[in-house]
Nucleic acid binder design. Structure first.
Length: 394
DNA sequence: CGATTTTGACCAGCGC
DNA sequence: GCGCTGGTCAAAATCG
């Protein structure tokens, strides 16, 4: 019985290993790998990688060990989206913290089923290689550039304290490509993405329940607190329309304005989780998998480029984003996201309908539409982007 | 014709 | 209080 199971598992592994071998061969030929979906395995776990070049890998991580390899020239960053974070020590904040000196680690508060990591430094590479011993090589050409606090302030974004003093990291690869900033406004006290370390660093295991619970708890605290503050302000504002029809002015303006002012007095606008992404792109609007409706545009001080305001079109989803071009570098698009989606990405749903995956799983097994990036204009100037967040509806 | 974008007005917060 | 700025609203215009 056990032998039979072992044999089946072995056969599945062989099939998948063949597919992975094909990928490696494809990569060796430097053909762009747009998408790879492995055969279903006994495990529900799927490990996806999307390259900043737009290529998407879906690797079964219950197989040991999937290969990750990529032509050095085509991979500027590797994003792992772990439905079940099997690289558990990478999925924990303890790990994140220790690598934080050299790597930027991004996690999304409020996200309950998906974890995203931007991997770009040797320590993480070694970590991956340790887990994927058969990997020929995991390469990337990028490094992280964290903006200084003052630079951030000029974009209206403040930086978590523990990141504010970080300068651009030295490259170990000589003139490489810089992966520009991904920033979080969350301070550690009010909901750090950091979660407690898990003792279990087994390759095939999920993040331990304890660690997972910690993560969720801290995430939710932030999401709820911030969301309630913001929605209160938003409600107060909606009660008092920005522009009241002329004929109604005498009847409602005074009273409601007063009410609104009273309601808001002493209440600072509480921002939800915010993070900004700089992307080098010709297009102002980058596909991130979500649908947005523009609701405003403003001229930005000291910049020839306006800032556009977008809101997620999904009902009751309060996520907003602003998009503007950098005045210093017009090729750079700065996108600031605020809030946490209460729904999966429409792109996720769309993609998953084309697969044989079951629905609960499909929710997390595809990235939003890959983002096409322009080639770097100089050796320190490639930006890449992480797409939208995924989270379960509470 | 519904969805989306544009655009000027409005409002709150902040510094002076 | 005033002016400036960022953010939002909502009618009108435009798009698909």
């Amino acid at each position: 019985m056990e032998d039979q199971h072992f044999q089946q598992s072995r056969n599945a592994n062989t099939d998948l290993e063949e597919e992975l071998e094909n990928i490696l061969q494809s990569l060796a030929r430097e053909e762009p790998l747009e998408s790879y979906t492995p055969a279903m395995t006994a495990s529900d776990a799927v490990h996806q990688c999307m390259l900043s070049s737009g290529a998407l890998w879906t690797l079964p991580f219950d197989l040991s060990p999937p290969a990750i390899s990529c032509p050095a020239t085509s991979l500027s960053a590797l994003r792992l989206d772990l439905q079940k974070p099997i690289i558990s020590d990478l999925s924990t904040a303890a790990r994140a913290e220790t690598i934080n000196q050299q790597a930027f680690y991004l996690d999304y508060p409020g996200t309950t089923g998906s974890f995203q990591h931007l991997l770009h430094l040797p320590e993480i590479e070694r970590e991956l290689l340790a887990h994927f011993p058969r990997v020929g090589e995991l390469r990337y050409e990028s490094e992280l550039k964290l903006l200084s606090s003052s630079a951030l302030n000029s974009t209206g974004i403040s930086l978590a304290a523990d990141l504010s003093n970080k300068e651009r990291l030295p490259s170990r690869r000589g003139p490489g490509i810089v992966l520009t900033s991904i920033l979080s406004e969350l301070s550690p006290e009010e909901g750090s993405p950091i979660v407690s370390p898990t003792a279990n660093s087994s390759f095939s295991s999920s993040l331990t329940d304890e660690a997972h619970a910690d993560h969720e708890e801290s995430s939710h605290t932030v999401a709820v607190t911030a969301a309630s503050g913001d929605s209160t302000a938003a409600r107060a504002k909606r009660k008092s329309p920005a522009r009241v029809p002329e004929e109604d002015l005498p009847s409602i303006t005074t009273h409601e304005k007063q009410q609104s002012k009273t309601a808001k007095k002493g209440k600072k606008r509480i921002r939800e989780h915010r993070y900004a992404i700089q992307t080098r792109s010709e297009k102002d609007i980058l596909e991130d998998g979500y649908k947005w409706r523009k609701y405003g545009q403003k001229a930005v001080k000291n910049s020839p480029y306006p800032r556009s305001y977008y809101r997620c079109t999904y009902a009751k989803c309060m996520v907003k984003k602003t998009v503007e071009r950098s005045s210093q570098d017009p090729g750079m698009v700065i996108t600031t996201y605020e809030g946490v989606h209460i729904h999966p990405s429409p792109a996720t749903i769309k993609n998953s309908s084309d697969t044989t995956l079951n629905s609960s799983r499909a929710m997390y097994t595809h990235f939003p539409t890959p983002i096409k990036l322009l080639p770097p204009c100089n050796s320190f100037d490639l930006a890449t982007q992480i797409g939208g967040q995924h989270c379960h509806v509470p």
